[in-house]
């Protein structure tokens, strides 16, 4: 079970795609839901929102950036290897209906999370304008899939290597100026979501974001993933991960994500130096 059947490196090897055998999950999963994975018995439980599912093949797809020891251990799993643990689908699915005109904004691996949501919104009859951003064009992922899932697509790069030279927020502003937009879905790094949210709030356009706090069990049992939404504490794992952007406290989320920064650095450094016990793997970067 949880065998990797397909693996791709994206964005110069910094982002990894795994297609994983998970028949029960693939039948059930809806856009916006996540899974929790663990590389082996000593590993951490890592939540990742699914980028795609294939119920016929009985597989799900996850896409993640290598940012620490746990994701480095995921990266070092090959086709044919199995995850020690994989559970899901978890969290509330995206509420998909035909609202009219929708803008989907994605950055980094958030684009992977955005993918099934964008597709579902378009399939529901919405006109979907998608805006994707990355630091440079060679770090952009899933351009073709996102083009297919959208009515029209804008690319932004910080360095101007492709499309609009600048941030997604600038294009979002333009689109909102010139169109009557009913819904915005913004998924990416916290600053991106925060600034998209500020823009749409000014225009009073309902906006959804997908929050990615640290989790342990992912089923509501521990409260590690608590986020403040509209002044109330919510558990992202069972109440989310999607929330009304205008009510979210992004600064608190950013701080809580840094809870274990020192430990994470120690762990990753040891792993890179090949000191990690049991696996004995060396970092390839």
């Amino acid at each position: 079970m949880a065998k990797i059947v397909n693996r791709q490196e994206m964005a110069q090897g910094t982002i990894i795609l795994n297609e994983i055998k998970a028949p029960r999950i693939s039948q059930k999963a809806k856009p916006g839901q996540f899974v929790i994975l663990q590389a082996d018995e000593t590993g951490e439980r890592i939540p990742l929102t699914m980028a795609d599912t294939n119920p016929k093949k009985g597989t799900i797809t996850i896409i993640y950036m290598v940012v620490g020891k746990s994701t480095a251990r995921f990266r070092d799993l090959n086709v044919g290897d199995e995850y020690y643990a994989l559970i899901g689908p978890l969290g509330m699915p995206t509420h998909v209906e035909n609202v009219g005109k929708v803008v989907c904004v994605g950055g980094g691996t958030g684009i992977a999370v955005l993918h099934p949501i964008t597709r579902a919104l378009k399939e529901a009859g919405n006109e979907v304008t998608t805006i994707l951003g990355s630091r440079s064009y060679d770090l952009l992922i899933m351009e073709e899939q996102m083009r297919a899932a959208s009515t029209d697509l804008h690319i932004c790069t910080d360095d101007g290597s492709h499309g609009h030279h600048g941030f997604v927020t600038q294009v979002l502003k333009d689109v909102l100026e010139n169109n009557d937009i009913d819904l915005v879905v913004a998924i990416g790094p916290i600053p991106m979501m925060k600034f998209c949210s500020l823009i749409t709030k000014e225009k009073n356009v309902h906006t959804l974001v997908s929050l990615n706090p640290i989790m342990v069990d992912g089923t509501g049992m521990c409260g590690c993933c608590r986020v403040t939404v509209g002044g109330d504490t919510k558990f992202a794992c069972v109440d989310g991960p999607e929330f009304d952007a205008h009510k979210g406290d992004f600064d608190e989320l950013a701080k809580r994500l840094a809870s274990y920064l020192d430990d994470e650095k120690q762990s990753f450094d040891a792993y890179k130096n090949g000191n990690a016990q049991k696996t004995g793997n060396f970092d390839k970067t």
Binding site: T42, G43, E44, R45, K69, S70, R73, V216, D217, M221, C222, S259, Y260, D263, E264, Q266, S267, A270, Q277
Partner: peptide
């Protein structure tokens, strides 16, 4: 849960940290 199930008390041998 971090301490017992995830064995945070054995960090960094186990990956899950506990403050």
């Amino acid at each position: 849960t971090r301490t017992n199930l995830m064995k945070g008390y054995l960090f960094p041998e186990y990956d899950t940290p506990i403050a």
